[in-house]
Each structure stands twice: as structure tokens, then as C-alpha cells.
Computed example of a mutant assay.
Amino acid sequence: MKFVIFDESRLGAVVDGGVVDVTHALPWAHDPDPVTAGWWRRLCGNFAEVRDRLRAAAQDGAPVPLDRVRLRAPVLNPSKLVAAASNYAEHVAEMHDVQERTLGRVEQWMMDFDVFLKSPSSLVGPSDDIVLPRDVVEAGHEVHHESELVVVIGPGGRDIPESTALEHVFGYAIGLDITVRSDGDRSRRKSYDTFSPVGPWITTSDEAGDPADFDIELTCSGRLRQKVNTSALITSVPAIVSYASSVMTLLPGDVIFTGAPPGVGPIVSGDVLDTSISRLGEMRIQVK
């Protein structure tokens, strides 16, 4: 199934013809407050228990065209945004030139795979804009796009074995990890408000298929910049989930950005980012 969060934190199923509101089919109270979002985390952690009733509600309901609803980020207030660094070999290679240009040196430690945290408040949805921070622009720092496969955690846990890691995945989405190229910690440079667009919906893992075979593509104002298949990931999705869970307990609804493909580049006000992932959809984001 494909799920959106739309309008006032309503849960929708994407079907032919648009979106069907399936909020009423949830077996627990729906709190529209996105900060508490308990119903959302319960859906991620217990999807197997409610799959059939949500599917039935989607089949019985009347769809509303997508252009008549406001799509929110398809995740609500996750406890954390985990991001993978240096996870495509060609991106690692291009970062040597990027860092020489933007920092005047290469930070070798940043060329190794690892995970770090982004602020959940940087999340926005497919109907929102990326807003470049005024101080960053005035300082002359480049701000780059990174189009990535996003994983949404289901049951979660600690020390999850790689062999069973995909059983802990609720679904997948498209993500943009927007990044200031400057000195300082990754987490700060990637955590400005609007720097984590996710959308347009979550495709559940049972429908999405093999996460090692997604085609990712991004154009910036019509110019192709990123094009890669996730088979090129250095550390696979199961290995990322397992490794992250060895550091921190993954909770239902947590979000993992799986790493930037090659082709990252600067964005400026007025740019339009069109990003797509096979079987997961596409979204268009304006830069302001």
C-alpha cells in the first residue's frame, strides 16, 4: 500500500484516482496533533495487524484527486532522523573536489561510511519549499541537494541482525538531504528547517520490493544531476538498519536516509528539484 498524510494529519491510501481517507479504519484514537503522533507510530509498529482493514477501507472509499489535497511529510514527528554518510563510491570520489572547492581541504574522516543525526524539525513534505537560510546565502556558502532513498522503521528494536533487518522496515519514500557545504558538524549543516523533504508518500515494504534495486534520479531546473541504482550502495539497507540499531534503539516511525548518490550540486533560489525513485513515485520541490 501507499500511504500519505494529508490536510490536517489525515491518513490516506493512494489508489487509482487519488487519495482515500482511511483514518476511520484505524483501531485506535486519531490525534491530529503532529507533535504527539502516537497513532502514526502505532501504525508503523503494528502495520501487519491493521493491513487488511486499511486495504478494505481504501477499496470501499471514494478517492479525492491528489491535486485537491495538501500532502504533508508522510512521517509524523519521528524520534530521530538517521542519515548514512559516504555510501556510494562515486559520491565519495566527487566529495574530494567538492571539499577542496568549498573548504580548501579534504576531511578524510568524512569519506568513510557512518551514520549521524538530523533534526526532525527539518522535515517537510512534497507540498513545501526548501528555504535557503539567509545567513548561509549571505556568507557565500554553497547549499547542495542530495536525493536519497528513505527507509521508515516499523517494529524497530536494538541490535537488529542484518539477516532480519528488512522485517523491521515499514516502508520507503523519496528524500532530499539538503546540505550546507561549510565547516562544522554534519548534523548542524543538514538540520536547517525545510532541509529534509520526504514524500510523496510511503510505499510499504511488502509492495515496494527489493531495496537494492531502486532507480534514483534528480534534475535541477531541468538539468540531470543524479542517476543511480541502489545496487551501488556500499552499505546495503539491511546493513544500515542493523548498524544504526547497534548504536541507538530504532523506534517505530524513525526515518533513515540511506546516503547521497553521486551528482550532488548547488541549489539557489528559484531552482526546481524534480526527484523520482522507481516504484516509489516522484516529487517536485521549489527552492526559495
Score class of each variant (00 low, 15 high):
152 V>P: 02
206 D>Q: 06
62 A>K: 08
36 T>C: 05
103 L>S: 04
66 L>K: 10
257 F>W: 14
198 V>W: 00
17 G>E: 13
247 V>C: 14
26 L>V: 03
14 V>E: 10
129 D>N: 15
151 V>T: 11
219 T>V: 09
262 P>H: 05
132 L>E: 05
29 A>K: 13
260 A>V: 05
169 V>S: 04
168 H>W: 00
251 L>P: 03
159 D>H: 11
41 R>I: 05
186 R>Y: 15
256 I>R: 03
214 F>H: 14
40 W>G: 13
141 H>N: 11
243 Y>E: 08
23 T>Y: 06
126 P>V: 02
225 R>Y: 10
133 P>G: 10
196 S>H: 02
263 G>H: 09
286 Q>K: 13
37 A>M: 11
36 T>F: 11
85 A>T: 07
169 V>W: 02
122 S>R: 03
99 Q>G: 03
104 G>S: 04
109 W>T: 14
170 F>R: 04
150 V>M: 03
156 G>R: 04
51 R>K: 13
194 T>M: 08
246 S>R: 12
233 L>H: 04
2 K>L: 04
104 G>M: 02
92 V>I: 14
104 G>Q: 02
85 A>I: 11
32 P>Y: 07
44 C>H: 06
112 D>T: 15
114 D>N: 13
39 W>R: 06
188 R>K: 13
52 D>C: 08
221 S>H: 08
223 R>M: 08
268 V>H: 12
281 G>P: 02
177 D>I: 01
82 V>T: 10
252 P>K: 01
239 A>I: 02
212 A>H: 15
221 S>Q: 09
136 V>R: 15
222 G>F: 03
132 L>K: 04
33 D>L: 03
242 S>A: 13
140 G>W: 06
88 Y>R: 04
195 F>Y: 04
134 R>M: 07
183 D>C: 07
261 P>F: 00
96 H>D: 12
250 L>K: 02
151 V>S: 06
263 G>Y: 05
205 S>K: 14
243 Y>I: 01
52 D>R: 12
36 T>Y: 09
125 G>M: 03
224 L>G: 10
137 V>D: 10
274 D>R: 15
116 F>H: 01
37 A>N: 11
248 M>G: 06
214 F>D: 08
135 D>V: 13
34 P>L: 05
133 P>A: 11
147 S>E: 09
74 P>S: 05
166 L>S: 05
